[in-house]
Amino acid sequence: MSPQLIANIVVLAAIYALVSAGYVLVYRVSHVLNLAHGELMMIGAYILVATAGLFSGNPILALLLAAVSGLVMGLVVYAVLMRWLTGEAVLAAVLVTIALGILLRGLSILIWTTQQFYPAAIFGWRNPPVHILPGVQISVASLAIVALTIIVYAALFLFLQFTAWGVRMRAAGQNPLLAEQRGIRLHAVYALAWGLSTFTASLAGMLLSLDSGVESTMATIGLKAFPAALVGGLDSLFGALVGALIVAAAEIAAIQFVNPLLSDVVPFLVLLLVLAVRPWGLFGSREQLDRV
């Protein structure tokens, strides 16, 4: 296996991992699978298009604004939609997220049409290749995705382990009743989980759009990252990292050595294989199975 292939796997795994983090965050805390995650990621990228148009001379401001909007988006989704489903059947909440996805796709065409947008071009940025090793090149945007994925995961680990809010989130995920009795405000914790989830999704969408633009099919990438989260186990952030690596490696191996036509199918085949052996994913906890 050539070094370039390994670099490709790392980049693709970083993309899947960054997207998967949001699936895991929301699932771990509220046991809801958010099937509008890809659409929320796409909206995050479109928001960058909007802020880039407003502040084309000040990319840092535009990026910051878009990132903050990503966080706010999740809080709004929770406050307007998901909070009314707390305590309802989990399936109802999942179906609401499917409906939200359809709504967001329609809205994005309404606002941004079906045209392709390139925020990098608005900033006047090029996306040149970087030689990281002899004979191994990746684009600046890809390098940024890898770096950001590492930062985001490190920050999330620290946040969940060592901060008060992180502990509250884990507590709420493990036993909401007990957590509430101990004075944890569940709505605040869930809202934070949604906010962080769309924040990371937005970061992924923004970087992908800086790399290769955004149009209405970007939402589908959310679906492609989905097997990564499940392979690792839906309630494990570490699992999402490993799952992303496995799925990315399988996909790239299929493209390189078997048949590029399989690239859409392989992640789901890997998923079926893992679910057949360990239905709760590689690093997921077993009791989660009974909850869904």
């Binding site: 489903l85 359809i102 709504l103 796709r105 329609g106 065409i109």
Partner: peptide, 24 residues
């Protein structure tokens, strides 16, 4: 223009949400 078609698409999502929230 194209608004109607995007609206149609979005409205389907809204109706599904309304049903799920108001009338399970």
């Amino acid at each position: 223009g194209n608004v109607v078609f995007a609206l149609d698409y979005a409205a389907f999502g809204v109706v599904m949400i309304l049903f799920l929230l108001l009338e399970p």
